[in-house]
Write a protein that binds this DNA or RNA. Structure first.
Lengths: 337, 337
DNA sequence: CTGAAAGCGCTAACAA
DNA sequence: TTGTTAGCGCTTTCAG
């Protein structure tokens, strides 16, 4: 059996309560006994029992990471995977453990809360779409501190992290314009909040540069690698084809490059391609992919910070923007048109 | 507050104990009351409290998924990511939740147990290397049911799943031999158990086919994409270069293809390449990659089954082999030499 | 067949 | 400053 506060109490000849207080550094315990208790705790290798703590509503040093999207996407969504990785590292550096919750289908947020809270997690880092008013209502009265990833919505107990939206797309368009491109396509527009933000940045920058947004050059689609391939082929076959393509994700961009290649076009000579996410593998594609880096380490740090802040004192949810940055590689070049 | 057995007891006008028994379908409770209890439980939306159960050493319906390798690998090891995904789906289909534990460094197995057991998990699905005798000893007296992924070691409370080793490599070599290849390289030999098994299969099949194993054609290295690129370049520059390359992982294979390309060689015209893992993205590389499919769904099912078996009655650990299968795509072709 | 009592490890409230 | 009591939700033991 593991060491409990009773074992320590017996050793130090005091009561369990005193031990409990001392271990949490309460000043109600004299410094001498506090030290004695902490020393023997260390000596005996005491570890608090998170289950017992959780049972009485205390902290368990556990955070739920919830991926509330249709499950087929999970493994394939490398962006989330890498984000998950960053978060797991940050969490463990703060001595928190991650409780992962992913289901086969996207659920109402309310159900997510119901699924997760019985396990006594201290907070939730939540990747989800907010589709209904009910979702919004659930988030407004979140039962435990919640941090939303990439969604712009905060409330008394839910913070949000906004990243990689508008400004990443703007930087991309700017980069392409500087390279002399005019016919710039946008591949992977859809109803996802992230896609919409990216499209928004694209549209704004196009207008600012005095370029027209041609409907033929806007591909509405999913944003996985397969959709990218289709988009690449489609754009390649246009009479008036684009000289550059902005894809909503790196995966999509990889697919786009494949599609272009199938149609006999060379990246970046004939067409420049930019992705979004800066996945680990994007450095290694051929050609290596120019991409908007979401800065996952920063996102992870911010998520953890938000959570710890909310946990410390109910300061309420906050909104934070995490900047992204364009990483230029070999899939973009001067426009030769 | 959530519904407890006391709430149900009050409704049905009986005691909490009876409710507890009834909910677990004990025959010590009469069928009538049992039904009444189960009905009202359902009606009130009762969910057992896993923390309370865990506290008294009972089942929490929680499994730890442990990735005990240096953390930088985690996000980049797509193979494990996809496996993790499969396992999370299978777990949730059995109504289990996953508790994920990954640290920055690979720890002794004993510490892994110490880290994870306080949370009351029912079992562990463990990805780890077994490097020391201490690790072996720890696994021999595993405190809770444990399933080892891809390691060949079982004991009273630890099962193991062996997969994608020898036989996958053999199928690959056979395939290449049938295509007329003779100078077949092996890239990514190292001390990892999986690599050794794969190399073993390679060597056996080469011998069986009457082909010599040329030391120049064996690349000892890590098996990530960067190492693959280096290996590809190296092999391309050999005076007597191989006509086919077996890589220990898909990532490595992708790197190898990049390296070959840099050296002006075409895959599969000049060189055939085979990977190991059959990652989701490998379908989309250019050319699409021939690869050994580990059949993660099967692995996940088996892991869960092993765990449930051990949980049911202490039947002791078992060893299971999970077959893999070669998926032929466009990175392999007839030898034109 | 059913129930009362005790305890898992911890902490909040109250007493000394 | 320290200790006692009670209770979180559940299950095991033992008594009715």
């Amino acid at each position: 059996m593991a060491i409990t506060i009773y074992d320590i109490a017996k050793e130090v000849k005091t009561s369990a309560v005193t031990v409990s207080l001392a271990l949490r550094n309460s000043k109600r315990v004299s410094l001498v006994t506090r030290n004695r208790i902490n020393d023997t705790a260390k000596r005996l290798g005491y570890q608090p029992n998170p289950l017992a703590r959780g049972l009485i509503g205390g902290r368990t040093k556990t955070i739920a990471f919830v991926f509330n999207f249709p499950s087929e996407h999970f493994a394939h969504d490398l962006s989330y995977m890498e984000l998950f990785h960053s978060i797991s590292l940050v969490a463990s550096s703060h001595d928190y453990k991650l409780f992962v919750h992913s289901s086969t289908v996207a659920k109402p947020v309310e159900e997510v809360f119901a699924d997760v809270t019985p396990y006594g997690v201290d907070g939730i880092i939540l990747g989800t779409n907010i589709t209904t008013d009910n979702d919004r209502k659930s988030l407004e009265k979140a039962p435990i501190p919640t941090v939303l990833l990439g969604r712009d919505f905060c409330a008394s107990n839910t913070s949000c992290l906004v990243y990689g939206g508008c400004e990443g797309a703007q930087a991309s368009v700017r980069h392409l314009v500087e390279l002399g491109h005019k016919r710039i396509a946008f591949a992977g527009k859809n109803r996802m909040e992230a896609s919409m933000r990216r499209y928004d940045g694209y549209a704004r920058s196009m207008r600012k540069a005095g370029l027209e947004i041609n409907d033929d050059l806007i591909i509405e689609s999913d944003w996985d690698i397969a959709a990218g391939e289709i988009a690449g082929v489609k754009l390649a076959r246009l009479a008036n084809r684009p000289t550059a393509i902005l894809a909503t994700t790196d995966m999509m961009a990889l697919g786009v490059m494949a599609g272009l290649k199938e149609e006999g076009l060379d990246v970046p000579k004939d067409v420049s391609v930019i992705g979004f996410d800066n996945l680990h593998i994007s450095r290694y594609s051929i050609p290596s992919l120019t991409s908007v880096d979401l800065q996952r380490k920063l996102i992870a740090d911010n998520a953890m910070e938000c959570l710890l802040d909310m946990l410390k004192e109910d300061g309420g949810g906050v909104r934070r923007e995490v900047p992204s940055s364009l990483v230029v590689r070999n899939s973009t070049a001067c426009c030769c048109d």
